[in-house]
Write a protein that binds this DNA or RNA. Sequence first.
DNA 1: GATGAATGAGGATTCATTCAT
DNA 2: CATGAATGAATCCTCATTCAT
Lengths: 209, 209, 209, 209
Amino acid sequence: MTITDRRSLRAEQKRHERRDAILRAAERVFCARGYPDASIADVIDAAQISRGTFYLYFDSKDALYMELIERFTGLVTEALQVVDPQDPDPALRILENVQRVVEVALTHPELTQLVLRESRGLNQAIDERLDRLYDFLHSMVVGALVQGASFGLIRKVYEPVIATAVVGAFKEVFLHHLAHGHPRDRASMSQALFEFGMRGLIITPPDVT
Amino acid sequence: MTITDRRSLRAEQKRHERRDAILRAAERVFCARGYPDASIADVIDAAQISRGTFYLYFDSKDALYMELIERFTGLVTEALQVVDPQDPDPALRILENVQRVVEVALTHPELTQLVLRESRGLNQAIDERLDRLYDFLHSMVVGALVQGASFGLIRKVYEPVIATAVVGAFKEVFLHHLAHGHPRDRASMSQALFEFGMRGLIITPPDVT
Amino acid sequence: MTITDRRSLRAEQKRHERRDAILRAAERVFCARGYPDASIADVIDAAQISRGTFYLYFDSKDALYMELIERFTGLVTEALQVVDPQDPDPALRILENVQRVVEVALTHPELTQLVLRESRGLNQAIDERLDRLYDFLHSMVVGALVQGASFGLIRKVYEPVIATAVVGAFKEVFLHHLAHGHPRDRASMSQALFEFGMRGLIITPPDVT
Amino acid sequence: MTITDRRSLRAEQKRHERRDAILRAAERVFCARGYPDASIADVIDAAQISRGTFYLYFDSKDALYMELIERFTGLVTEALQVVDPQDPDPALRILENVQRVVEVALTHPELTQLVLRESRGLNQAIDERLDRLYDFLHSMVVGALVQGASFGLIRKVYEPVIATAVVGAFKEVFLHHLAHGHPRDRASMSQALFEFGMRGLIITPPDVT
DNA sequence: GATGAATGAGGATTCATTCAT
DNA sequence: CATGAATGAATCCTCATTCAT
């Protein structure tokens, strides 16, 4: 490894850290003031960097917002795993999915609120990204509903509406609890959400802790 | 009736119409571009009035937004009626409430989307008004849950969370369906929402059409 | 006298009264808020007339201000009378002039403050009118100085500067006393001003270069 | 001295120069058009800067005006020095004060006119600042009068009125001479003002009631 | 790379004046 | 004559973005 390599490695790492610091600052700021009302000035103050530096790491305010959405999308996408049709306990798999999403929301409360609040109409790319996120969430829920029905666990519903309703229910509970800072423990929150979404729908509720 | 009376009556009416035209234009514009991003210029273009005229009817952009929120709140408040504990068929009363809310949402799709999107953080008065609206919705749902439980219609749930979830479910379904312009008929939409909210929770589902 | 004549006479009088009412309202409003900050809305509110009516009586806001300046100028012009070179007691004549000007200021405190505050730079015609007023005042004082010197009553001074100083002294005393509402009696105020202008302060003038 | 130091020093200096250039431009513009009528557009045109740059150096139009008032106040406060009661020639000290104030007015003609014109009623802080300036001037003159009387140099007068008159006399002379651009030499102007204030006009005071 | 001064389009709001009724 | 709704130019100010240092 040459000196240049080591140098550029260090530089690369530092660059990454800086980017991350900006993203974390933006999370806080955008969540606190709302994306449209938060200014670049707020972000650079929080991130302790100069105006120019910001544009060295991000193309625009919208690009920063977009990246935060991407981050959240990535976390949620990782958290939600398609249930194997062969799985012996699909309901448990679904509960685990809920638990992982709750984990994401409670670990990144500001990012979660920010994204769930959905500031739309600013930029087409952002709107499309949010659409894709919701399409994904929607399809995951629809998948669960269909699978649950096929297993005879869930009664037959009109999936498009019910999936939307389930997504909305989760969103609202997250937003409300994160905003009011109720430090509900993760387990009970997951349980309540799971039961709401599933119990209503499931014919034979699984025995979960 | 004197000439003056008749004149001022006509003037009063015209004034009211103008105000209404601005409100309707604002509904469209704020819904399409989002409140923070929509400018007064957009509104006056849509309403076909001059800059000055706008401020003849509204004190500020925020005041206009506030009035739209008030309008929506009024419609929803009228739509949701507390169920008499003596009522022989409380589930039907609740379904009627749902039907009336769906009616409001489908009759005023832009207003509904605009308000449900909740642009917050711009003005304290607005934030408080939205808080009050959600407190009201929340309390209505909690009321229904408690009552349903007392009748043995609904299983016991942790009402604060479940009420939040129900409100969120309705919000999301409205937002999604209004945004994508699915011209679903009111009856089936009401039914789906009602069943989602109730069926899940009710021990003995009512026989509704 | 025909009916038409009488009618038009009454109309004429009413018209005059209205005009006067507006002028008096404007005096109050312009004095209280300052000419540039006072709006036509303030004036018509104070005068209890409609927006349109205002423009029936005055061409513009500036024209109204101009008319108030004219009124003040008229009052002051009437108050200040050139002293006859033959007069046996010219100093008394000057004191009487002072007394009449004080009378004007105390009778029309708002008009006086308004005009003495000299909002300039708004309109060339107004600036010129104010210039003429000050030229007149200046020339009156210069006249008194010259005359006084010719009688041996006043020592020889460089009139242009001293006349300006005398005018300024009067202005400031009026402004100060009117603004702070010191209800000093007219006689003592006139006396103080007269003495200041005429008598001088030093008993033994120092020997300065 | 590090490079950063030198750089920030140069930056600091440039910043100061820019600020100063804006202040000087504002002096000109506010003097020419009057503070309320001059717009930020006028100032930035005169200063050859962009709209945004202006707000980089000043918080608001009022803040800029305030700073100009402060500048003038500072200059005048420095110019006027309390006369030591032990001073062998207090009249000379007073003449020196007058000379220094004249120097200020002639060196900063636009600033002087601007401030002496007293645009009030726009902003409470500004009004209070102007009040303080006049209180200071008033108290300086009162001090001189009282001291002069104690030395037997000045006859006993009713100080509050006479001090107001003296301040007004100076104001008017400055305003008049600066506005009309009479390039009177400083010495003779100081002399005339001093004599007016100190010496008085009449040789044989008339016997008035 | 890092900085922060500079930019100017765009925002909400005001207000003197006009004119149809 | 009287009215007051309508107008739109003009005002102050903000802020995302650029660029010379």
